[in-house]
Simulated assay, not measured.
Amino acid sequence: MSAPKRPKFSVGDIVVNTLYGTVGTVTDIQQVDGTFLYEINHGHSLFAEQTLVLLSEFTGDLWIAEEIEIELPFFLGEIVRVHDYGGQLFKVVGVRTEIYRYYGEGWEETIYELKRLTDGWEIEVHLEDMIPLADGDETSVTLVQDIVIAAPMKASIALPSAGEKSGPSVDDLLDMYNDYKALYEWFGDDQYKRMMETVVQRLQTIVNYHNKN
């Protein structure tokens, strides 16, 4: 009688998601139909074993995450004035944050979408151009939004020697695709569908590389 299958990774292991090159910690392990699935950083998605590699064994490119706090002093539906528009009143109908990263510098810009009360005319303005109607801060509302972006970083790990694999093989990718296809059918989470598409893109890259060589 064969011993029961055990998970490849343990809770607390630091692993690399080879589809995205991102690093995370295993925070939960689940088993579905005999397949072990791993939760990373308390996220909502589960990952198959073929997707993950221990950080100590990884030889490719990593991505480092940067967490940014964006303060949104105006909330949706608030009535405001705008510089250069006199006493005209506008209603906040949308907001977005644009993130810029260049070598050696970076910044964020918050842009509000406004609709004029008199005729519904819409404009977009930067945060610094908006004027609150309230005189004091006690009536204003501040929202804090966490945005995670990624910047490429070469892994400081030795490259594989001759004969070693630098990434998942075609068979591994096919297994990944089948695993995520099953997960998508089970849970209906679009995240798994996007992962299926990412696997297909990786397979296409491999095929194109071999066709050129």
Rank of each mutant, 00 (worst) to 15 (best):
T110F: 08
G94P: 13
L174N: 06
V92A: 06
H44R: 05
V207D: 02
Y20F: 13
E164F: 14
V93H: 11
L76N: 14
D146A: 14
W107P: 03
N41L: 12
L62N: 03
S166W: 10
F90W: 06
I64K: 00
F36V: 00
I99C: 01
V95C: 04
Y85E: 13
D137Q: 14
R116V: 13
A151Q: 05
R6M: 13
T59F: 10
Q145A: 09
D129R: 00
V32M: 09
E185Q: 07
L117W: 09
N213I: 04
L55Y: 02
V144R: 13
T25E: 15
G136M: 08
Y103Q: 15
L203D: 04
L114I: 04
V26D: 15
D137L: 15
Q50L: 09
N41R: 03
V11D: 12
A150P: 00
G21V: 09
Y209F: 08
F74P: 01
R96A: 05
D33E: 13
T97D: 04
E122G: 03
G94W: 11
D172G: 09
Q204F: 11
A155V: 00
G120A: 04
T18W: 02
E124V: 09
M195T: 02
H210Y: 10
T97I: 05
D179A: 12
R81A: 05
S156K: 03
E39V: 00
L203R: 10
D135E: 00
N41E: 10
R81D: 00
F58Y: 09
T59Q: 15
N208P: 08
K154V: 13
R96E: 02
K154Y: 14
D61E: 12
E71M: 09
F75K: 10
N213M: 10
E105V: 00
R81E: 01
R6D: 05
S140H: 07
Y38M: 02
E197K: 08
I40C: 03
I99G: 02
T27M: 12
Y177R: 12
G43N: 02
M1G: 07
Y177D: 00
K115W: 04
Q145F: 14
I64F: 05
H42G: 12
V144A: 14
E124N: 11
F74A: 06
L19N: 01
E124T: 07
I147R: 11
N41M: 09
D84N: 03
M1K: 13
G87N: 12
L62V: 06
V141H: 05
G12L: 03
A134F: 11
R194F: 14
G34F: 12
Q191S: 14
T118P: 14
T51G: 02
